[in-house]
C-alpha cells in the first residue's frame, strides 16, 4: 500500500480549528452589521429591525461632509499615486535587469515597511513646519500624505501586469514604425490598463479606510469618515457608527471584488 501524501486537512482537529478561525474572523463583522439594523439605541441589546440609523447617518451633516471629504481625498490620492506608480513600474520593468533594482523596489515600497505611526508623526512635524512657514491650509496635505502611502499598493499590481508582458511587443511596435511614445500609447498602455485600474482601485480602498496618518495630519474640521467615527466612539456609542461602518464595508468589498475580477480575468 502506498502511503497517502501528507495533507493538513487530515490532521485531527482540522475542522474544528478552521471553524473557530472563521468565527473569529467574521463574528465581529456580522455582529456589527446586525446591530446596524437595531431599532434600539444600543450596540449590544437587540430592539427589533429598523433602518433608522442609516437614515440618521445619511441625514447627519457631519457624516455627509466627512464622507464627501473621504471620497475626494481617496479619488485624488488614488489618481496621483496610480500615475506615479505606473511611471515607476514602467521604469523598473521595461528594460533588462539593472544594478540596484532590488534597492529601487524596496525604496518604492517603503510605506509598506515603515510603521504607519512613524510616518504619521513625521508628516505631522513636516506639514506643521510648512503650515507655519507658508500659512497654506486645506485638504492638500491629506491628499499628499495619502498619495504617498498609496503608491506601493498601486505599484504592485501594475508591476505584476508588466512583468507578464512580452518585451518583444514593444520591439515589434518600434519595428513597425511606432515612435517610443506611439509604442507606449498603442501597445504598452492598452495592455497595462487592467493593471492600472486594479492598482487605482486598491489605492482608493487603502486611502478610504486610513485612520492613523489622517488623524495626525488633518486640521480641525477635516474629519474623514474613519476619523469621524473614531471621534464618535469617544462619546456615546449608537448604532449609527455600525451603519456607517457597514456602508464603508460594502463599498470596500465591492471595490476589492472588482479588483479581483480584473486581475484574475486578464491573467489567462
Amino acid at each position: 500500500m502506498a502511503t497517502k501524501p501528507f495533507s493538513v486537512t487530515r490532521l485531527p482537529g482540522f475542522g474544528a480549528i478552521a471553524i473557530a478561525a472563521f468565527i473569529a474572523l467574521y463574528a465581529p463583522i456580522i455582529t456589527l452589521v446586525v446591530y446596524s439594523f437595531n431599532a434600539a439605541n444600543s450596540v449590544a441589546i437587540w430592539g427589533g429591525f429598523s433602518l433608522d440609523w442609516y437614515r440618521l447617518a445619511w441625514e447627519n451633516d457631519q457624516v455627509q461632509q466627512a464622507a464627501i471629504r473621504s471620497l475626494v481625498i481617496a479619488t485624488f490620492a488614488a489618481g496621483f499615486s496610480t500615475l506615479l506608480a505606473t511611471l515607476a513600474a514602467v521604469g523598473t520593468t521595461r528594460r533588462g535587469r539593472f544594478k540596484g533594482q532590488t534597492i529601487i523596489y524596496v525604496m518604492i515600497n517603503q510605506p509598506l515597511m515603515v510603521p504607519e505611526i512613524v510616518t504619521a508623526v513625521a508628516l505631522l512635524i513636516l506639514f506643521g513646519a510648512i503650515r507655519t512657514a507658508t500659512g497654506i491650509q486645506g485638504l492638500g496635505y491629506l491628499i499628499l500624505a495619502h498619495t504617498a502611502f498609496c503608491i506601493p499598493f498601486a505599484y504592485l499590481p501594475i508591476r505584476a501586469r508588466l512583468e507578464g508582458m512580452d518585451m518583444s511587443l514593444e520591439t515589434a511596435a518600434a519595428d513597425l514604425y511606432a515612435t517610443p511614445w506611439q509604442a507606449f500609447r498603442h501597445v504598452t498602455l492598452p495592455l497595462l490598463a487592467p493593471g492600472i485600474l486594479a492598482g487605482a482601485m486598491l489605492a482608493f480602498v487603502i486611502s478610504l479606510d486610513d485612520v492613523i496618518i489622517t488623524e495626525f495630519v488633518k486640521s480641525a474640521g477635516q474629519d474623514t469618515l474613519p476619523t469621524y467615527m473614531l471621534g464618535q466612539l469617544r462619546r456615546a456609542m449608537t448604532p449609527e457608527v455600525n451603519a456607517i461602518s457597514t456602508a464603508l464595508l460594502v463599498l470596500t468589498v465591492l471595490l476589492l471584488t472588482g479588483f479581483f475580477l480584473i486581475t484574475r480575468g486578464r491573467q489567462n
Binding site: S168, A173, D175
Partner: peptide
Amino acid sequence: SPPNKRNVNTVFQSYALFPH
C-alpha cells in the same frame, strides 16, 4: 537610425502579435 526609422520589418520568432 532607430528601428522605427528603418524601412525594414521583422517576423519575430515568438511572432509578437499584439494580443489586444
